[in-house]
């Protein structure tokens, strides 16, 4: 008997392109004040990590995208992108950084 495999699903949520991102602007101004004059633009978003059980990676991705549409992102304001990879044992935050 094989167990249903685990996946790490990472959802990246940003304001829609062109939407005013005052937080990104403020961070950009801060970086330039520190001397990072090469910074042209900054967008600040959210990164949500999930550990899910699914039949395969496609099913895990579909589930993650549904979750973004239903709750994790506000489709009026935000866009999302979902990344999936097989999960090692452990919590959603395995300390290895985004996939």
């Amino acid at each position: 008997m094989t167990a249903v495999p685990a996946f790490l699903v990472a959802a990246e949520i940003h304001l829609k392109p062109g939407a005013l991102d005052p937080q990104g602007q403020a961070v950009g101004a801060g970086l330039r004040a520190l001397g990072h004059t090469e910074v042209e633009d900054v967008r600040v978003g959210k990164h949500v990590r999930l550990r899910v059980r699914a039949a395969d990676a496609d099913a895990a991705r579909a589930a993650g995208e549904r979750m973004c549409r239903q709750l994790l992102a506000n489709p009026v304001l935000e866009t999302y992108a979902v990344e999936v990879r097989p999960a090692p044992d452990g919590p959603a935050d395995d300390g290895t950084g985004p996939p």
Binding site: A19, L20, P22, N74
Partner: peptide, 17 residues
């Protein structure tokens, strides 16, 4: 009400932060 879909639109961070 906006998040619940009872009103259209959304409320974002104030422009001036």
């Amino acid at each position: 009400l906006c998040e619940a879909g009872l009103l259209p639109g959304a409320l974002a961070r104030n422009a001036g932060l």
